[in-house]
């Protein structure tokens, strides 16, 4: 074996059989250059393997998955009367088990930053967004809060879907609306969770990272719409 053949073997090691590896090793024993190359390739390989090591998963994932399993189970269960009753009990139990952690955001600015980031990361139609026919019913079942979305401060928006998202430990309803090709995110969260006060009925507008955000409060809920 010569040096060129050795290089080609080294680059394609996975495709050669053991007899070729034998010949390559014999060459490497006699050829300092190729031996050096082999060692460096092995060092590179170890480095790559190290980069592929596991990264920690956010432990909240278990809860998120629990919840999404519960939702699909509930949808199926509702077909039977008894199942529906059980599901109702489950919803009520969840309602009481859920203890809000008040004061997640220190200011409107911080709230806006998180909201816009969430919109940029999630604000597109994926299968995790459930189709919604009735926003209020969906909100009751999933956010366990009653809220109403009447008129939105932007054009001709049609609801596409929704999911529950956790932002800074607060549970939000993340609703997607569509106007032509444009996708809008509407976030709905319980007033007690956000940690700063809004004047009821007043429309707040702010721009974060080029995204315009409208925030308002109605009854006990806070709404934020991107545009």
């Amino acid at each position: 074996m010569d040096c060129a053949t050795f290089s080609s073997w080294l680059e394609n090691r996975d495709t050669y059989d053991l007899s070729e590896a034998d010949r390559a090793m014999k060459h490497a024993v006699q050829c300092a250059k190729c031996k050096d190359l082999l060692q460096k390739d092995e060092e590179l390989d170890r480095f790559v393997a190290k980069m592929f090591q596991y990264e920690m998963m956010d432990k909240r994932m278990y809860g998120k998955i629990d919840r999404s399993l519960g939702e699909s189970g509930r949808k199926r269960g509702i077909k039977g009367g008894l199942a529906a009753a059980v599901a109702m009990v489950a919803v009520v139990a969840l309602f009481f088990a859920f203890t809000p952690s008040p004061g997640s955001f220190s200011s409107m600015d911080e709230f806006g930053r998180y909201i816009v980031q969430e919109h940029q990361n999630h604000g597109r139609i994926t299968p995790l967004f459930e189709k919604i026919d009735n926003v209020e019913g969906w909100g009751r079942d999933n956010l366990h809060k009653s809220f109403k979305v009447n008129t939105l401060p932007a054009g001709n928006l049609k609801i596409v879907g929704g999911r529950i998202c956790t932002i800074k430990d607060c549970e939000f309803a993340h609703l997607l609306y569509q106007d032509g090709k444009e996708i809008y995110s509407l976030f709905v969260v319980s007033e007690g969770e956000i940690g700063f006060n809004l004047e009821p009925g007043r429309m707040y507008s702010l721009t974060v990272a080029g995204v315009e955000l409208h925030v308002w409060q109605k009854q006990k809920m806070v709404y934020a719409l991107t545009s």
């Binding site: 998955i65 999404s68 299968p127």
Partner: peptide, 10 residues
């Protein structure tokens, strides 16, 4: 990645 795992599990 989190979305992908969640979709997978559903």
């Amino acid at each position: 990645a989190e979305d992908l795992v969640q979709e997978t599990m559903v």
